[in-house]
Amino acid sequence: MSSYNWNAEDYQQNSAAQQQWACELIAKLALTGSENLLDLGCGDGKITAEIADRLPNGTVIGIDNSSSMITLARQQYPANRYPNLTFERMDARALAFENQFDVVFSNAVLHWIKDHRPVIGGLFKSLKPGGKILLQMGAKGGISAYLAVLDQILLLPEWKIYFQNFEFPYGFMGVEEYEVMLLAAGFQIQRVELIAKDALHANKEKFKGWIRTTWLPYTERVPEGEREQFIELIATRYLEKKPQDAEGRVHVPMVRLEVAAEKV
């Protein structure tokens, strides 16, 4: 997670799908306005600030492992305008909180971590008794059409040279394995379910922006001078399989894993 060079400003311009999913997830929190909340993997802080607006009598801490994301979040959502909101650089696998939060929220983040057990243990410790988690992340087998195109490209001679000893970088989980980890940490499970999503990109350029800003484990292995060519090829090959719709939009079908649990 920490080894990737996140471009916070570029991500901000190419994360419309993630933002939409976050808004849908926030609605499920049913906030009363006075909770202390942790946003795990806050990114550029846009969603974290929106949550802070909904908690006039509460507090929000946004954490992220990327220093560029935290810097941008602090610049855009300063304490003088958001007195109940703070941002900290922190690894989700080494949370430094204890009995502090009523709610932990996380959207489109945890699939960046391969072993979720230290995260889940840290979440349990971070929550007050009665505190809840609501997490959504990529699921096992949840983006198969896109990954099939990517896998084919990695076999081409001109790109294969950059992917020697490459290991699949994401921690996509299934329902049963997540339930086992939650129970082992002490959580009472409310639900763990798969939810179908359509990641919608306004046009091919926005689709390429999504590839460029969120598929760093792949793009960063390619020399910088060849990176745009690599991204263009991924986008073109994908659109041969799943063409743009009548409005020119690009659809990437996905399945997300959504987790709701409580510390009793």
Score class of each variant (00 low, 15 high):
G41Y: 05
P83W: 04
L134Q: 11
I161C: 06
T59C: 02
N107Y: 03
V60Y: 06
S68T: 13
S144R: 15
L135M: 11
M137C: 14
K160T: 06
K114C: 07
D44C: 03
P129R: 06
K140Y: 15
N107W: 02
S106H: 10
N65D: 13
F97K: 01
Y82M: 07
G121Q: 12
L72N: 09
W159H: 00
F163K: 04
E50A: 09
I113R: 08
R74V: 05
I47D: 08
G62Q: 10
A92Y: 12
F101Q: 01
A52R: 00
G45C: 04
R81H: 15
N80T: 03
D53N: 14
G141Y: 11
E50G: 10
V149L: 01
A94T: 03
R93K: 14
A52Q: 07
L147Y: 14
L95D: 07
L110W: 01
L127D: 04
Q75A: 12
N84E: 09
Y82G: 02
S126M: 04
D151H: 09
A52C: 05
M69W: 07
Q152W: 12
L127N: 03
A52N: 01
D102W: 04
P157R: 03
K125V: 06
S126N: 00
P129N: 10
V109A: 13
L150M: 15
D115M: 12
R93M: 14
R93P: 02
N80L: 02
K125M: 00
Q164Y: 09
I161S: 03
V149Y: 02
Y77Q: 03
M137S: 15
Y162D: 02
I51E: 07
M90I: 00
G138I: 06
P129Y: 00
I61N: 06
N57Y: 07
E158H: 01
D64N: 08
A148C: 05
F163N: 04
N99I: 06
G142Y: 05
V119F: 03
I133E: 09
F124W: 14
G58N: 10
K132E: 15
K140C: 11
W112F: 07
G138R: 15
G45W: 06
V119A: 02
D53L: 13
M137D: 12
G45I: 07
I161V: 06
L154P: 05
A49M: 04
P118A: 08
P83S: 07
H116V: 07
I133L: 08
M137A: 15
E88Q: 13
E88H: 14
F163T: 03
T86P: 00
L85G: 01
L123S: 03
S67H: 13
